[in-house]
């Protein structure tokens, strides 16, 4: 049903110390993991690197094997047209359907600007977006 509309994001725990992000980045490089989009959320003592990568399953196993604290998270991705009100359309549809966006990050993708979102109910969110005629970016397209 979701036909690739639900995308696997990798969430990586990064201690908030000088050099920690560089270390994680070096592991990603060593494992030959290519990131299409990423976002860094930080707190006083740690950060969470959220990344959209090629082959998330393979990357997940490689990172785990390296001792990196990593988690798979379902996110969805919408195309944001370069016009006023584009984000509103998606957010409004979610609001009406009672879907909560837990966090999100915009990224300039290959062809267009996209917005990755972690929502409380991704399956329902995909349905709501499809019903509202908002184009979803699928895992094959990222």
């Amino acid at each position: 049903m979701t036909d690739g509309s639900i995308i696997t994001q990798l969430s990586i725990f990064v201690n908030n110390e000088p050099g920690r992000l560089a270390y994680i980045a070096s592991v990603l490089k060593e494992c030959d993991i290519n990131m299409h989009a990423f976002n860094l959320a930080e707190s006083a003592d740690f950060g969470i690197l959220r990344a959209i990568v090629d082959d998330p399953e393979g990357a997940y196993e490689k990172l785990k094997a390296k001792g990196v604290i990593v988690r798979k998270t379902d996110v969805i991705c919408v195309s944001i047209e370069d016009t006023p009100g584009a984000l509103f359309k998606a957010a409004d549809a979610f609001g009406k359907a009672g879907i909560n966006i837990e966090y999100g990050y915009a990224y300039s993708g290959r062809k267009e600007s996209v917005f990755y979102m972690r929502v409380n109910d991704p399956v329902k969110a995909v349905q709501v977006l499809e019903d509202s005629g908002i184009r979803l970016v699928t895992s094959g397209e990222v």
Binding site: Q9, S11, F13, S43, I48, R71, T73, E102
Partner: peptide
């Protein structure tokens, strides 16, 4: 116990 949500960690 690790979560991708800062809120959970906080």
């Amino acid at each position: 116990a690790f979560s991708d949500k800062i809120e959970d960690m906080n």
